[in-house]
Each structure stands twice: as structure tokens, then as C-alpha cells.
């Protein structure tokens, strides 16, 4: 059965996309069949990393205009991964984004159904891991992705605002939806006096990734595929292993 991970955070700029992309790369490198979907349809990112020659977008799948198979692209050869590596991008065209903003609750309700159907389709396509890169906070699309997922990776930074918002989202979204969650502390500063925690808000903290400038400056490449010895890559492989242990 396809295992779906929603990479989500309470606040923006915590590094969700970077972690989602590199985690997808790590899984595909290992030989797992992976599909990475850009669910941040109001602020798309994946198109700028993968530059797909796309005819159809994640937007079309959520709208029910196209099936998931028309939406995703195989990038395995380009990145030389052992497993299949598919990506689905959101449409960066501003008129499409404006269209999304106008959508009502009925549209969001059918978008969730289409997302769940897409997951079932990907299962038939032997996809092992489905990763949703979401938008921060309580946006319809993100919560739909959380609802369609089997586990939530909460990407967290050390700001006070992120801390209190995360606690709210755990209590008001993840717990009522009975989602299995893990926390990843990202961009940690070594010069701050933070104790390393095993649990926060009752949830396992599975990684503490240090803040590294080159992770930001080299955001056009997938470090888990291009530089496997990089500290960031090592952290992502370790996250992948921790997720697998949580699944058992």
C-alpha cells in the first residue's frame, strides 16, 4: 500500500519544500518508487526546481479535470535514481493561482476526494511513497493533504510563534484527524541554548537539522542525490530511517 507523508508546518519558511524534495530523492535513491506532489498551489515551488514540460498540473488533478497519471512526470532517468521518481507540479501561472483563491468549500471537498483517489491510483502504479509538499498553516489544500496522508512530518523552527502555532495545529487538526505525526527541527542554531528533546507536545522529535548556509544557496539541486556525504543529506537519510521505524 502506498504510504503518504504530508510535509507540513504551522508557519512559513521552515524548509518544508527542501525537506520534501530531498526526502523524495533519498527514498528514490534507495530503490523505493516515489511520487512528490506540490500541494502548495497558492505558492508553487517544485516547477522551479524540476522545470517540467508540463501539460497538466496538480491543479487539474484536484479540480477533477485530469487523473493523477496525466499530472505526474517521471524524472528517474534525469536524477539517476534506483527507484521510480515521479513529480507533480502546481501551475505557477498567476491567473491559475487567482482562480484557486476563488474556489469555495464545495471545490475543496471534491479536491479532497480527488486527492484520495489519486493516492489509490498511485498504489496501483506501485508507488511506495507519496510525499505532499504543502503550504504552511491552516489552508484548505494543506489540511486536505494532511487528511489524505498516513503520517505528518511537522517541520519546525525555533521561533516562539512557530512553537505556539504548532501546538494549536496538533490539537485542532492532526489529533482530531488521528494522524501519526513526527517533528523535524530545522535550521537549528548551535549557539542557542536548546536542550535536545526526544518529545515535544507529546510527539517524537526525529531530527535536529543544523542551520547551514549552503543548503539555502544550493536550493536548485537535490543534495541527497548530488552530495550524499553532506550533513544535510545525512540528516535526511536518518529521517527516512526514523520514519520507517515509526511505520513498523
Amino acid at each position: 500500500m502506498t504510504f503518504a507523508l504530508a510535509v507540513h508546518s504551522s508557519k512559513g519558511g521552515t524548509g518544508k519544500t527542501c525537506i520534501a524534495v530531498n526526502l523524495a530523492g533519498a527514498y528514490a535513491l534507495e530503490g523505493k518508487n516515489v511520487c512528490l506532489l506540490d500541494i502548495d498551489i497558492r505558492g508553487p515551488s517544485l516547477f522551479s526546481i524540476f522545470k517540467p514540460e508540463a501539460l497538466f498540473w496538480v491543479n487539474d488533478m484536484l479540480s477533477g479535470k485530469r487523473g493523477i497519471k496525466d499530472t505526474i512526470h517521471d524524472v528517474s532517468e534525469e536524477f539517476g535514481t534506483k527507484g521510480k521518481f515521479f513529480i507533480g507540479c502546481s501551475n505557477p501561472d498567476i491567473s491559475e493561482i487567482r482562480e484557486i483563491v476563488r474556489k469555495d468549500r464545495n471545490w475543496q471537498s471534491s479536491a479532497l476526494k480527488n486527492l484520495i483517489s489519486a493516492k489509490k491510483e498511485l498504489d496501483k502504479k506501485n508507488i511506495d511513497i507519496l510525499i505532499f509538499d504543502t503550504s504552511p498553516g491552516v489552508e484548505y489544500e494543506s489540511i486536505n493533504a494532511v487528511a489524505a496522508s498516513d503520517m505528518v512530518l511537522i517541520v519546525h523552527n525555533s521561533s516562539i510563534a512557530c512553537n505556539s502555532c504548532t501546538e494549536q495545529i496538533i490539537g485542532g487538526i492532526y489529533t482530531p484527524l488521528k494522524k501519526h505525526c513526527v517533528i523535524i527541527d530545522n535550521m537549528c542554531h548551535d549557539n542557542t541554548l536548546q536542550p535536545s528533546e526526544e518529545k515535544r507536545f507529546g510527539i517524537d522529535v526525529i531530527a535536529r537539522i543544523p542551520c547551514m548556509c549552503d543548503v539555502a544557496t544550493r536550493n536548485d539541486e537535490i543534495l541527497t542525490l548530488t552530495e550524499r556525504d553532506h550533513i544535510f543529506s545525512q540528516n535526511i537519510y536518518s529521517i527516512k530511517d526514523r520514519i520507517e521505524r515509526h511505520r513498523l
Binding site: D104, R105, N106, Q108, S109, S110, L112, K113, I116, Y140, I143, N144, A147, G172, I173, P176, L177, K178
Partner: peptide, 27 residues
């Protein structure tokens, strides 16, 4: 008028027992 299809935010506002049933049916 508010939508009569079940969106995720409405589902979240349901009491626990109904939410579990609705989520299962959705899946």
C-alpha cells in the same frame, strides 16, 4: 449559503464519533 458537501474544515468540527465515521467513509 454554506456548502452542503462535506469539506475538511466542516469534518473537523464534527463530534469525535461522527468525525471517525465520516473520515472512514471519505477514505
Amino acid at each position: 449559503n454554506i456548502a452542503d458537501s462535506l469539506d475538511i474544515i466542516t469534518l473537523l468540527s464534527l463530534p469525535d464519533h461522527l468525525r471517525t465515521t465520516a473520515t472512514t467513509l471519505l477514505e
